[in-house]
Amino acid sequence: MADDSFLWELSVDVPTPARVYNYSIGGKDHFSADREAALSAASQYPEVIDVSRENRLFLYRAVRLFARDQGISQFLDLGSGLPGSPNVHEVAHEFNPVSRVSYVDRDPMVLAHGRALLVPDDRVAVVEGDVMRPEVLLDDLVSSGRIDLSQPVGMLLLSVPQFVAQDRRLSRALEHYWDAVAPGSYLAVSQLAALSQAEVHRLNEFVSQRFRIGWRARLPEEINAYLGKWVPVEPGLGDVDAWRPDPTQPPITDIDERGQRFLGASRRQKRIFEYGGVLYKPE
């Protein structure tokens, strides 16, 4: 998320990206420092609240594609963050009730909250693991019976790559996932991006001043490069808000009144956005 980026401080006085994101999507697992950090970011980038919420709505559409349209029944939410509606297992079970979902993260706070908040269900697990070390993670999941690599897997890597500063590390991880999973597997990916190098630099400087984390926003072409062999499905890669938009899909939870004043800002100006889409490994 150095690249010890999935290990956030546990202090309630220090904002963490997981809790800031949770606030932006209407979650309840955040503290005053996280809310203030989110609102401070929105004062500089008013569209950022919309962008977080668009990313969560994209999650629903991606998981629905996996479960309903492709019949996938095993899911990995890689770098899952704090629970927030809609959760992956809620969407997966709506369209494929036998689905098994593993939430993977290294953040101790995320692991503790996830295990405390998720309803006991043998179809759902919160797993400690480093998503940038897929060789270890997948071995552990196979040995525990959480995943069968001979069958297609639906994977999500949403708003995670910006917390990995090294392109090569991302490329190696995504190549390993490609090699390990069965043909017919799918990957939903997104990361914060901008269309100019100047804006990317400005965003990186802004984040580095507020969080002591590894971080790198990127240009779209830099993101395309680390995706390797993964093949985009229609309509391809771009702003995830435009990936198969569905105005009838369930809304996400309302944000509080202070955050609501920023809703809709992305329609007026959008300097940053979540770039990504859904990709697959052909049969």
Results as ranks from 00 to 15, higher is better:
L170I: 02
M132W: 14
F262M: 11
V14W: 01
P152M: 05
V98N: 08
P97Q: 10
V231H: 09
V119T: 14
L118N: 05
I255P: 09
L263W: 01
H201L: 07
L78P: 07
L219N: 01
F31M: 05
D148S: 04
S73F: 01
S80L: 09
V164T: 05
E221L: 08
G184M: 07
G84C: 14
Y186N: 04
Q249Y: 00
A125R: 10
D241F: 08
G214Y: 00
R216M: 05
A112H: 06
W8Q: 03
V136D: 15
L237W: 01
L10A: 09
D148V: 03
R146M: 10
D254E: 15
D241N: 11
V91P: 10
E128L: 09
R115Y: 07
L158H: 03
L158W: 07
A198S: 15
F31L: 05
W243V: 05
P120C: 05
E175R: 02
L174T: 09
R169N: 01
F211A: 00
G228R: 00
A33L: 00
K28F: 07
P250A: 11
R244Q: 13
G27V: 03
V104Y: 03
Y186P: 00
L192E: 00
S99D: 09
W243F: 14
E128K: 08
A116N: 13
V124R: 00
N55W: 00
L59N: 05
S150F: 08
I213N: 04
E221W: 06
H89V: 11
L59W: 06
R146Q: 11
G236N: 12
L195M: 12
I49R: 01
V12C: 02
D148F: 02
